[in-house]
Every structure is written in C-alpha cells, then in structure tokens.
Amino acid sequence: MLDALEVITTVSVGVMVGVEFSVAFVINRILDALPEDSGQLGRAHGGRMLGAVMPVWYITSVALVAVWAIARWDHHGTGLVVTAGALLILSVIMSILLLVPINNRSKKWTPENRPADWKEQSNRWDRFHYVRVAVIIAAFALLVTALA
C-alpha cells in the first residue's frame, strides 16, 4: 500500500512538472509566435483553464508528499521526501504571491481591454514561472531519488 502511495505521488508530481514545463517552454512559445492578438487570447484562455486546475494539483501533490513522509518517517530517504515537500510548498507560496496575481489580471484581458504594459506583465509571469518550474523539477528529482 505504501509503495503504491510513493508511486502515485511521484507520477502525480512528475506529470505536473511535465505540464508546467510544457507551458514554459512549448505552449507559451507557440502562442507568442501566433499572429496579431491570437497569442494573447490563447494565454488568457490558458490562464483561465489551468488557473482552475493547477491549484488543486499543487495542493494534492503537497498532501500526498506529506502523507508519504509521515508514513515512511523511519525509512531511508525520508529527508529527501521532506525536502521535496518543502520545495512544493515553496512553489505554492510563489504561485500565490507572484504568479496568481498576474494570472488573475491576464486571464480577463482581450485586445480591447488589456493594459499598455501587458507584454511586460506576461514576461514577468514567464520569468517567475521558469523559477517555479525549476523548483518543482528539483522536488520531483528528490522524490525519484527517494523512491530508488
């Protein structure tokens, strides 16, 4: 049972990393290359869609890691799991303080109502997101190492 918890947790965090990596290095690059206002509209739609799903995924991942750490407290690798959990908590804090405020504004933008500095705000979101992706990749690597 605990082995299944470890695998489910690692896969869940790994898929989350894949989604966030894809947003950072694939989806946003595709959207930025679209003509005229298409990219901004795509980012707004993505912000609405992923803004609804990702908070649940992040919190569930933190909860799963916490259960793993508690259930295997006396086992080898628990320090790695606790550190991974701390990194995931950091990613949630980063999201709430840095990324969500920008996302909450940008998901409502249209070509008619977006602010003059919308590109700068999108670029700021991208920079914060790159850091968040690095943090969750590190958490995932620690979970994989703890599994091994």
Rank of each mutant, 00 (worst) to 15 (best):
M1E: 12
L2T: 10
L2K: 09
D3V: 07
D3T: 13
A4P: 03
E6H: 13
I8T: 10
V11N: 05
V13W: 03
G14C: 05
E20P: 00
F21P: 02
F21T: 07
V23Q: 07
V23D: 05
A24C: 13
F25D: 05
V26E: 02
N28H: 11
N28I: 05
R29H: 14
R29L: 14
R29E: 13
I30F: 12
I30N: 08
L31D: 00
D32S: 12
L34I: 06
P35L: 11
E36V: 06
S38D: 11
L41Y: 03
H45T: 15
G46Q: 07
G47I: 00
M49Y: 11
M49I: 10
L50A: 09
G51V: 01
M54C: 06
P55I: 06
W57N: 05
W57Y: 08
Y58G: 04
Y58V: 08
Y58D: 05
I59Q: 02
A63D: 08
A66P: 03
A66G: 13
A69N: 01
A71V: 07
R72H: 10
R72Q: 10
W73P: 00
G79P: 07
L80R: 09
V82L: 14
L87W: 01
I89L: 15
V92K: 02
M94Q: 12
M94W: 10
S95N: 12
S95M: 11
I96K: 14
I96M: 14
L97A: 15
L98K: 10
L99K: 05
L99E: 11
V100A: 12
P101K: 05
I102N: 06
I102M: 12
N103G: 11
N104A: 14
N104G: 07
N104S: 10
R105T: 02
R105E: 15
T110G: 11
P111N: 06
P111C: 06
N113P: 08
P115M: 03
A116F: 02
A116L: 09
D117A: 07
W118C: 04
K119E: 14
E120K: 14
Q121V: 10
Q121I: 10
N123Q: 15
N123C: 02
R124K: 15
H129N: 10
V133H: 04
I136Y: 01
F140R: 02
F140C: 06
L142S: 00
L142N: 01
L143P: 03
L143H: 08
V144Y: 01
A146I: 08
A148R: 14
